[in-house]
């Protein structure tokens, strides 16, 4: 058992605002025959706080997290209450106009379907 009885100096609200840094969210990326699936941990972020862009082969994910306890004294701070940001380079084989995203329980799921040309095809052999 670890003790979290370390006191931060000063009042919570101001400190929280000052320390609201941007961190890199952790992601899982999976690939199937038809698409890439990107899962990103964005705890505390709501759908209107997420900004996803796909531009010139780059997928950018931003998440903004509102401060919940502004004004209260901060007793323990083990992680920064933060915003999230990360950029990925994505090959041209992704169909940019078909990218979809969904946010549930603080996990962002981005579906990046592949363009038809790179999807695997079964080739019929003529007898």
């Amino acid at each position: 058992m670890s003790s979290v009885a370390t006191k931060a100096n000063g009042t919570g609200g101001d400190l929280a605002a000052e320390r609201a840094v941007t961190v890199t969210p952790r992601v899982d990326i999976l690939e199937t025959e038809h698409e890439f699936l990107l899962l990103a941990d964005l705890p505390g972020v709501t759908a209107d706080g997420v900004d996803i862009r796909f531009e010139q082969g780059e997928l950018t994910i931003h998440g903004k997290r509102p401060a919940k306890y502004a004004g209260k004294d901060e007793a323990v701070r083990e992680h920064p209450g933060t915003n999230f940001s990360r950029v990925f380079g994505v090959a041209e084989t992704v169909a940019a106009d078909k990218i979809e995203a969904d946010l549930k329980h603080g996990v962002l799921t981005v579906r990046l379907p592949k363009v038809e040309a790179v999807k695997p095809r079964k080739i019929a052999v003529r007898g």
Binding site: V4, D41, K72, E74, A75, V76, H105
Partner: peptide, 24 residues
Amino acid sequence: VSGPLLNVWEDENALYVEADLPGI
């Protein structure tokens, strides 16, 4: 440490604990 990190706030009446546990 294993498990989520915690932030704790406090006022006169209560403690407020926040743990990031996405996708649970």
